[in-house]
Design a protein around this nucleic acid. Structure first.
Lengths: 360, 360
DNA sequence: TCATTTTTGATTGACGTCTATCATTTTCAC
DNA sequence: GTGAAAATGATAGACGTCAATCAAAAATGA
């Protein structure tokens, strides 16, 4: 009935508790024969170490750091909110979450922050990956010191991190293409695309996926060269106005990056007729309002709240050296005006009283 | 630095540990004055009881029962798989999950199962709601005995359960309408609808939501009366064939219920030209195959794996009397061929070795 | 075979909470 | 002021694990 304890294992293996403990915690100085006996007994009894008891005994606190880009980015603002919400609830489970501000898209800032982190006590970090080799050494140093690393939203090289939490951006771009393609239902058209920069791996992948599907399945649609607006809304606005002035055949817009407030303002200013179909990324206050008002038609979202929670869960598992708990794949979420969650702001749950209704 | 313990609280309140304990565990026989002192101290120190330690001490095991419809339903098969996967991983956290088979859609079976549950030791149950009053008494009895109840997938009356885990089915129906409407892009058309039964609350809500959006935003589309096929694939097949024979103006199909294998077989058999746009519910092996082959175009899914995990989490919180951890709202997920998760089967993670790659 | 090293056993005190017991003090009614 | 009831204090063992110590036994090498 009750789960077996390490004492049970020791007894079954015919060794003392001390020896069994030496095996499970690999403290060394154990004969191979004993190791095998203990492992066999664990197998036979189905022993699983009681993590709660272990943590209690250790006085273990999971110290996690999230390095997030600072600035006006609404997506990361949502993720911050989700994290502080999580932090409040997880303090009861010995999880300490610290958010470190990083200059956005800055290799230098990230490198400095990684070096600065006071390692004693830190168990794991989550960082938003940047392509390029400059992070390799600091990350390796950190991991040598036993810190687990997950990449968040944008991946690192597979050998630089222990896990990736984020969506498949190629799939996201393909999805956008599918939606726009189907909504043209056979008509010809031209799609204006926008991106932050072609240095950002996620943006490139989205554009590639988009192109693949359009070419293969919707050849009657042409793709215009992307406006590169550095995720800056003013630049997005200017680019949109310019392109729409130069081309009155645009039937759709796909922005793989941020700066959607500029996009919305431009659509309102230009008021092209007929209105183009619009797909953008990330459900935040402004994009949500535009979706509800009908200015844009689809939002592809990666649910920062879920990603934050998952990053914490995976870091805990990594730190414990456990196997990963079952984690359904993160999938690019499609929003239309009808399947929007009730609240965009994940922090609407009252952290302090916890008085939020239990049914969501 | 360290979180305060109950001893710290007692000290700060100027009472003994025993008295502080009497307060936090409401054992009675405490003067109001002392209660206030202890509560003030808890507030001041920010005391949060260490649940792990408490559970360890109590020898607490969370005993949960999931009452799921038996039968060939692929959606619930996925949920079962997710649950056993969860169970394997959560045994380390003192969670014991038991799956109880229920005859599908049977008030009687559900009532009998509720009465039969051996209450001693049971802490919480999850059941798939059925409309009608016959469950009221057994549920009330169960909850009187301290068992927490969550409704899963299909809701109960709000006063019959502690929480609901599932999607908003009205929103799901509206979403289907939006997708089909946009994919017609102005053309007229007729939508064939299918449902299991008009006794199932979720099916009704989906149809209602669908109708609302079509009427409001896509008035050039007409909705045909639903085929009621009891989620039986043979009945779905027959109904489809009959309707398509009678009406060659059908441009789209929306099935709010199960039995999609019959739908796919019918489409292959009839091969209407042009092929109708198809929206169905729940991503399972067959619907996935049909989506990938282009026979159907959208799947609206409620991610049984996530729902299972969430039901467990919420039950644990309810049982602990904790506040609900932050839970992003469950949203009807839209799948196109391009944003499908890598594996439909959540059990592909090897439970025993845990050797699944950590990046999903 | 003896000295040395390696391996094992036995035990102990945390960690923070729960539950229980028993003795003591305070409060209250009369 | 007395007696009963209510409230409080003090303490101890348990939960399963970790981390450490010390003594005893077994294996190893010369």
């Amino acid at each position: 009935m009750r789960n077996p304890t390490l004492s049970d294992v020791a007894k079954a293996a015919g060794v003392s508790y001390a020896t069994a403990d030496r095996v499970v915690n690999s403290r060394g100085n154990v004969a191979d024969k004993s190791i095998r006996k203990v492992q066999a007994a664990m197998e036979a009894l189905g022993y699983v170490r009681d993590i709660a008891a272990a943590n209690l005994s250790r006085g273990r606190v999971y110290r996690l750091a999230f390095l997030l880009p600072s600035g006006p980015n609404a997506f990361f603002a949502k993720m911050r909110a989700a994290l502080s919400n999580l932090a409040a609830h997880l303090s009861a489970e010995r999880v300490d979450i610290q958010i470190v501000d990083i200059a956005a898209f800055s290799h230098q800032g990230l490198r400095a922050a990684l070096a600065d982190i006071e390692v004693p006590g830190l168990d794991g970090i989550a960082i938003v990956g940047l392509s390029g080799a400059s992070l390799q050494q600091p990350l390796a140093d950190l991991r040598d010191k036993g810190v687990s690393v997950v990449s968040l939203v944008s991946d690192l090289r597979a050998d630089e991190r222990d896990a990736y939490v984020g969506i498949n951006n190629l799939a996201a771009g393909r999805t956008a293409a599918r939606l726009l393609g189907m909504a043209h239902s056979g008509r010809a058209g031209a799609v204006l695309t926008l991106a932050g920069s072609l240095d950002a791996e996620d943006h490139i992948q989205r554009l590639n996926g988009f192109r693949d599907v359009i070419k293969a399945d919707f050849p009657h649609l042409t793709i215009l060269d992307p406006i590169l607006a550095k995720d800056d809304e003013a630049a997005v606005f200017d680019g949109m106005v310019e392109r729409f002035k130069a081309n009155d055949q645009i039937t759709a817009v796909y922005n793989v990056g941020a700066g959607n407030q500029g996009l919305v303002r431009a659509l309102e200013a230009i008021a092209p007729d007929p209105a183009p179909l619009c797909v953008v990324h990330e459900l935040v206050a402004h994009s949500r309002a535009a979706l509800e008002s009908g200015l844009i038609h689809f939002i592809i979202d990666q649910r920062p709240d879920i990603e934050a929670a998952r990053a914490v869960t995976i870091l805990r598992a990594l730190i414990d050296g456990r196997s990963k708990p079952p984690m359904p794949e993160l999938v690019p979420m499609i929003y239309v005006p009808d399947n929007l969650p009730a609240h965009t702001d994940p922090a609407h749950t009252d952290i302090h009283t916890g008085k939020a209704p239990l049914h969501d």
